[in-house]
Amino acid sequence: MRDDKPGAKYGRDEWAQWGVALVVFAAVPLLGKKHFVNMGNEILVMGLFAMGFNLLYGVTGMLSFGQAAYYGVGAYTVGLLLSKGVAPFWVALPATMAVGGALALVLGPLCIRLSGVYFTMLTLAFAEMVWGIVFKWYDFTGGDNGIQGIPMPEALHSPLRYYYFTLAVVFVSFWLIRRIVDSPFGAVLQSIRENPERTGFIGVKVRRYQLAAMVLSGVFAALAGGLFAGYQHSIHPDMLHWTKSGEVILMSILGGVSSFFGPLMGAGIIVFIEDMIGKYTEFWEIWIGGIMLAIVIFFPRGLIGTFDTWITRWRNHGKHAETAARP
């Protein structure tokens, strides 16, 4: 039916998407507005978070409602290592991936014992527990006050430099995610999404693959969290709250979970909308809620997926019209 499943080879079309995404993000600072650089930075970070999440959701078909735990743990890895002076940023940022992966290795086996919505609830429950610990452990995490003034290396002090640094890290990650999806391993993940039982029948150890997907997803979420800590220089337990996990689901579904860059696009739109609406009304909740509702009802395949459908339909409609005109 669709040619835009994450596993499908895009050929030239996807290269065009990569090109557009890179050029647009690389060009943002040329507009000369610091605010756009900040927004762009946040979009990139949230985009990475969402793309990593989609590796689990869109590709493997596992809906986690606890990804904020990994994102937050990544942020706290950078925050704690830097503010306690244990390790420099260049060590701390890669360390987030190890910590995120390790957390997934601990929580993953507990979560994948159940499937479907039970799995979803387990991820949520464990993420809330991680939140509780971060919130409560004053001596270590700073508790509800969080950590401020995270000391960043001189080379990344300017927002512009940090932006390009983020851009590089995020696009390398995108490339890695693409490679993972395209690999034989990725093919197994997609077959698990389509039918876990049947995948099991052909001798695949489904749970092992599911765990691997959770670990990879946790790795990218933690990396995104680490990048965010470096971007804002402040972190807070709210980053682990379930609303954050909900946000990343929203971004992915909004953009489209079955198109590779869908989650990035969703992240861009949500970050942009949040920024705009807050400016104009105190009743932003009803707007965001209304937009979410509209997406759910009218865009079941996300914006990219729906646009594709429209384009296809329009094209076909044109063809039919032509045929009709010629008796």
Partner: peptide, 12 residues
């Protein structure tokens, strides 16, 4: 996923 978004949108 849609359930989560839909019910969450009603909270807001």
């Amino acid at each position: 996923g849609f359930q989560i978004l839909l019910t969450y949108s009603f909270i807001l």
